[in-house]
Nucleic acid binder design. Sequence first.
DNA 1: GTCCAATTGGACAAGAGTGTCCAACTTGAA
DNA 2: TTCAAGTTGGACACTCTTGTCCAATTGGAC
Lengths: 211, 211
Amino acid sequence: MDIETAEKPDLAKSKRDRILEAAATVFCQDGYTGASIDAVATKAGVSRQTIYNHVGDKDGLFKEVVAALTDKSAAKFLLLMEEFPDRPENIEAELTAFSSRFLNHLTQDKTSRWLLRLAENESGRYPELFTVWREYGSGRKRSMVAAHLSQLALAGHLDIDDPTLAARQYLALLTAEWRAEFQLGRFPSEEECAGMAERAVKTFLRAFGRR
Amino acid sequence: MDIETAEKPDLAKSKRDRILEAAATVFCQDGYTGASIDAVATKAGVSRQTIYNHVGDKDGLFKEVVAALTDKSAAKFLLLMEEFPDRPENIEAELTAFSSRFLNHLTQDKTSRWLLRLAENESGRYPELFTVWREYGSGRKRSMVAAHLSQLALAGHLDIDDPTLAARQYLALLTAEWRAEFQLGRFPSEEECAGMAERAVKTFLRAFGRR
DNA sequence: GTCCAATTGGACAAGAGTGTCCAACTTGAA
DNA sequence: TTCAAGTTGGACACTCTTGTCCAATTGGAC
């Protein structure tokens, strides 16, 4: 439809991977309806027929993409979560550092970004797929944060009644500015993420810091 | 494409209004690409040609819809904002009440909901349109909240350094739970909105209430 | 070298959508 | 009544997409 920008068939990977990767890009860029199999095929450097051989269907392609991205994204977040400060000496500094990494990860990890936008745009079409993602991704994140916050509260670092609510509010504060930028198509720099994290944590600790 | 549910040509209104209204529904339901002029026409109870006579183009139709909804939504929010508590006796109670009305409005006003979803899904396609909306809608909201918060701070009800940031965080806290529900396609009841408002305001005041 | 599976590219039918044209029809005002 | 503007519905050309079929080609395993 418009000028092709930088074809990158990436011959190292398997065809299947290339297909799923290209499909992720195209679905996120154009939405489910706007995405065409042809576009995916050329972007993946693969014939259209091959796509049908692998995934059978546009529907199948879409579902496989979401499933693959969900797994990938969840795995990365699991790793990230291990860095949550459990025995902080300076809770503000350490929580800020973690939060900054969190935002940076959100910004830089294509997978997360793609999935986020996909979920925003396409959740109406495949509610099942995205409720799974929500519970498995967003919800899982929240409950992990809640667990860590509980621990901090127990250790006397925080003053929290309802850890799940606190987790939700922590994430809301943290991603408030980020979301606005992201929706405008901008990707905040590392410094900007650090600033957002600092402001969010400051407010969070004013609310939930030890009295 | 599927079964038509409840046709309502609404013969009282002008054709133009009926077209814009139907278009809003269809665009929000199916996205820009998924929406068909035919669907709009039948939903509006109007011939396809009439649509072309009025707005010329699918693009034109879309832009007119967004412009109309933006105006409508902004006007309603202006009214709502006047209810912000400026001389509170019990700040928690009054801010909670306002916040609850805010969420209810978001939930019940079709226009706001449509616009929100439209912006989420279609901002990539027409960045200009939605930056306008963002500055005029979401940004305007934030700056109005910021002004009110400043006033409350000046009067000694709140302890705020950066009113714009506080406004953003207030809105983030307030809409955190609401967004999750909305994205799942659920519309929170009045009681649920009240609960969300209460929890958000409680945290907000823990952070920014008078020390 | 042979075989087999994956892949390719091109052709194809079917469907849906856009935007145009136009002749026929309403409808209100002069 | 007559006129003009708006409206209608149907036909049309055009494009794009999906999904299928198939014959030809490739490339690795044996």
